[in-house]
Amino acid sequence: MPNSRVTLISPALSPALREARFDDGSGELDAAGVRRARSAAAGLPGADRAAASPSTRCRRTAEALGLSAPEAPALAALDVGRWRGRSLAEVTAAEPDAVASWLADPALAPHGGETVRGLCDRAGAWLEDTARAPGRVIAVVEPDVVRALLVRALGLPEPAFWRLDVRPLTAVDLSGRAGRWNLQVGTPLGDAP
């Protein structure tokens, strides 16, 4: 099996990220986010392939970084069902027991959407498929997708998903091959905060 390198880049700042809001996929970047992504473009490593989560903020970040990154449905953000578009604070105030259950059990989806386990499985399958070809892939993906990929790549228990923080416009590098990945974390891009 060939060695691969996958660079995961989280999107630049957007109002939804700033407000800890469950994005509905249509959230644009703010002006500062676009500027930072453009300034980070020169520091990106070369890549053989690129991909992006289908959300607007990931596609716009990829564009600002100068990447031709087709949408990868397998890299879509966690579907949070009826919570989409609401902030975590709003949902917690309205449904505290549902949020507590969701955070405690990766197999639950009280919002009617996808489970954390489902996201980890979907993203992990993309990673293993990507590893079949040698070379570097740059993927601009939602923070929850970065967390899901790390859970699967490193064989972490699924509750670790909630213990991984992903800052805006940062890179995480995975290198290796299917079934055996090494991790380099938190490489800043440009002057991201």
Rank of each mutant, 00 (worst) to 15 (best):
V141F: 03
D191G: 04
P2W: 11
S101A: 11
C58Y: 00
G190K: 04
A32Q: 11
L149Y: 03
V140C: 02
A74F: 06
A98C: 12
S87G: 15
P54T: 05
C58W: 00
A47R: 14
L65Y: 08
R117S: 15
W126E: 03
A72H: 05
T61R: 03
V166G: 10
D173W: 05
A64N: 03
G155N: 09
P134S: 13
M1N: 13
L67V: 08
P159H: 08
A192Q: 03
A31H: 13
A41T: 07
A148F: 02
S55K: 00
R57T: 01
E114P: 00
S26T: 15
V6L: 10
L156W: 07
A160W: 13
D23S: 12
G27Q: 00
V6C: 01
T61I: 01
L183S: 07
A37V: 05
V137C: 09
E28Y: 02
A74T: 11
A41V: 02
A160L: 11
T92R: 12
G179V: 10
A104Q: 07
I138C: 08
S26W: 01
L189K: 05
A93R: 12
L44V: 09
V146F: 07
P106C: 02
N182F: 12
V166H: 09
R177M: 07
P45H: 02
V141Y: 00
A40R: 05
A52Y: 07
D79S: 15
L17K: 06
L127A: 02
P54C: 02
E114V: 06
V116S: 01
G85Y: 14
L13P: 13
G113L: 00
D165E: 13
A139T: 06
A104P: 02
A178G: 10
A123L: 15
D30G: 04
P157A: 08
S68N: 06
L78F: 12
C120K: 12
L183A: 05
E28H: 14
A107E: 14
G186T: 04
T170Y: 09
L65D: 08
W126C: 03
S26I: 12
D105A: 12
A160I: 07
S10A: 14
G43A: 08
V151K: 01
A93W: 11
L17P: 06
V172Q: 07
D144Y: 00
A148T: 06
D30Q: 04
L17H: 05
A41K: 03
M1T: 14
E128L: 13
A31S: 14
R60E: 09
P193W: 04
L44E: 06
A192F: 00
R86P: 09
L150Q: 00
R136M: 10
R84E: 15
S26C: 11
F22A: 08
G27R: 01
R122K: 13
A125E: 15
R5T: 15
G46K: 06
S26E: 13
R5I: 12
P15G: 11
G112L: 03
A171D: 00
R82C: 15
P157Q: 06
